[in-house]
Nucleic acid binder design. Structure first.
Lengths: 149, 149
DNA sequence: CAAAATCCATTGGTATACACACAAGTTTTT
DNA sequence: AAAAACTTGTGTGTATACCAATGGATTTTG
């Protein structure tokens, strides 16, 4: 690969790589800032746990894997998240009578209460995260983000 | 906050929360896609390890904590990353004669070679990640991302 | 119907990522 | 110079996050 640009010395190729301008690095930092805003606003749940709880409140009763797909987490990840939500009595599980492989998940009354209590804060977190952008920029940013999904 | 919208019942507030439209969720998914592209293109290093190695090649000899700051990783995180880079003989450490607390880090010859070998692939990863956007959109996206940092 | 393919939940392993506490070294204050 | 404040590296604990493998259940195929 380096041999394809014979005029550039290897060091020049290296110099040309500015970490701070790479999408990956910028996305990581933007996400760090968002996670920090989240942690400051909601201490009862992690962002991931809140996402799972919110999706479960939206979907009703679904299997663990289905919840994982809906929240973009793989099987191993969603299991840990659900375990922690169950430990906090926010989610209840029961065997699916239709399919013996599945575990049906549902928010508990406490889970519903917590979700409704923190939902406004969650909206505020979205606003705070986007605060450095004006309204037009926010719209564009969300649109472009969606294209990158 | 909730009291500012008294006409909405809690359930309505809950219904109004669409996880799939939240910045945090979109950024997480966009990042997942990027990490997948990275893993497909570069198997020798993780994105984090590559970032640390690239920054070290850019900066020369710096302490572990300084490298962590330059790559946006906290002390505990950068330690693990550097440990793994040292285990692969990509980075060497020596005591700082100026400050007995510090460990000076430097890329090994092998570290330089690997960085120069994969740097073109890293550029390609950035291009692939942004590929769903046209050129104008890419510029805007990077600009807005930078504002969110 | 039987075999193959798929799906589900779980487990083990590796790698971020951050909070917190700690000890030793360095700088700043007083 | 002595005290206070800070920095550096390390260790512990918790929480994502994903891969690969596994055993049991279900669906699809032949």
């Amino acid at each position: 690969m380096t041999s394809e640009t014979p005029k550039l010395t290897p060091s020049a190729a290296a110099d040309a790589y500015a970490l701070d301008d790479q999408v990956g690095f910028l996305m990581r930092r933007a996400n760090q800032r968002h996670l920090s805003i989240f942690a400051d606003a909601i201490s009862d749940l992690t962002p991931t746990q809140f996402a799972a709880l919110a999706k479960l409140c939206e979907l009703g009763a679904v299997s663990q894997n289905a919840l994982g797909r809906a929240t973009a987490m793989d099987g191993a990840t969603i299991k840990g998240v659900v375990d922690r939500l169950r430990a906090k009595d926010l989610v209840a599980s029961s065997p699916d009578p239709t399919d013996q492989r599945r575990i049906l998940l549902k928010p508990t009354a406490q889970g519903w209460d917590l979700f409704e209590a923190v939902a406004p804060a969650a909206h505020q977190i979205t606003r705070d995260t986007l605060a450095p952008l004006n309204e037009a920029e926010q719209t564009i940013f969300l649109l472009l983000l969606q294209k990158l999904t």
